[in-house]
């Protein structure tokens, strides 16, 4: 990664500001994504993720600061930007009546690819998306996961240096979601810079770096593992046959900051300073539930940072 990080950024935001009326949707946002880096943007609904992505790809003009893709200012670059950027918004429209091949041909023409270049590129993209044997199927007849992979292939036809994806796996089942992620890693290994917004915390944890957006501001940014290491609270797992009763009883114990059903039991986040008191009360209350410490995960980080920032 070291030589990758020293090269010039594929995507960059410097002090981006965007208002809608009196609402400040994005406030002083700076970030930088290197070639071969996978960067995840997470945050509660309404935090400004989609606005930030739209500013970066030049679909919105900032009220302050600037965004650059491969060095070119996003909102001013026009066609030059389109050549170095792939963008997949939440609602990505392909032509439902056209086959996979025909959709690719349409986008190939749009980007002015030569026929040799087009053929090579299509063979490569259909290969890595495992769509080759479906190439005659109409887009409307594809499953959700295959449709997303075709949309991704269309966005990558012209060999962009940066790819921006707005919640690419919404509505995609767990198996297809994993396939899409394997595909993203293949692309990143080839040197593509990827910026994506996601509501899935397990996906965020698999990014090289994540930025946590809250109220339009970047309130944390680091490698997911580093954010988990910096987590100050303690996580416990409570095994309980009667989960609802356990939840009610644990709610008022000292230091409990968050409590949620998790698999067969409950996950409890306890402030470190109160952990001793929490454990004592848990033991003395003659609770018939089993308590054990567990490693905090990225979702814990997200939840507690979001709650703290509110």
């Amino acid at each position: 990664m070291s030589d990758v990080l020293t090269s010039s950024p594929a995507l960059e935001a410097r002090g981006l500001v965007r208002r809608f009326g009196r609402t400040v949707a994005v406030s002083d946002l700076s970030l930088s994504i290197a070639p071969g880096e996978l960067y995840g943007l997470v945050g509660p609904d309404g935090a400004g993720k989609t606005t930030a992505l739209r500013l970066l790809v030049g679909l919105l003009t900032p009220d302050g600061g600037e965004a650059r893709v491969a060095g070119a200012v996003s909102h001013a670059a026009g066609g030059a930007l389109r050549a170095s950027l792939g963008y997949m918004p939440q609602q990505y429209s392909l032509y439902g009546d056209l086959s996979i091949d025909e959709n690719l041909r349409f986008f190939g023409d749009l980007f002015g690819l030569s026929s040799t270049n087009f053929r090579e590129r299509v063979a490569h993209l259909l290969g890595i998306t495992q769509l080759t044997r479906f190439r005659d199927r109409r887009a409307d007849a594809l499953s959700g996961g295959m449709y997303k992979k075709l949309a991704l292939a269309c966005a990558l036809l012209h060999r962009p240096r940066a790819l921006v994806l707005d919640e690419p796996t919404n509505g995609v089942d767990p198996v297809s979601r994993r396939e899409l992620w394997e595909l993203l890693y293949t692309l990143v290994d080839e040197g593509l810079a990827v910026l994506l917004a996601t509501p899935y915390m397990d996906e965020a944890a698999r990014c090289h770096r994540v930025g946590l957006l809250q109220g339009g501001r970047l309130i944390a940014e680091d490698a997911p593992a580093a954010l988990v290491r910096a987590f100050e609270d303690l996580a416990y797992f409570v095994t309980a046959a009667d989960r609802d009763a356990a939840e009610a009883a644990l709610h008022d114990l000292p230091g409990v900051r968050a409590l949620s059903p998790h698999g067969p039991g409950l996950r409890v986040i306890v402030a470190a300073a109160d952990a001793e008191a929490f454990r004592r009360r848990f033991a003395s209350a003659d609770m018939r539930w089993h308590l054990e410490p567990t490693a905090p995960d990225f979702e814990d980080v997200f939840l507690m940072r979001s709650i703290d920032a509110e």
Binding site: E167, G171, P199
Partner: peptide, 20 residues
Amino acid sequence: DEPTAGVDPLARRAFWRVIR
């Protein structure tokens, strides 16, 4: 039918409290 697609983890938790 997929009531929480694209909803953040905090809102999903609040939604499921209502469901339960």
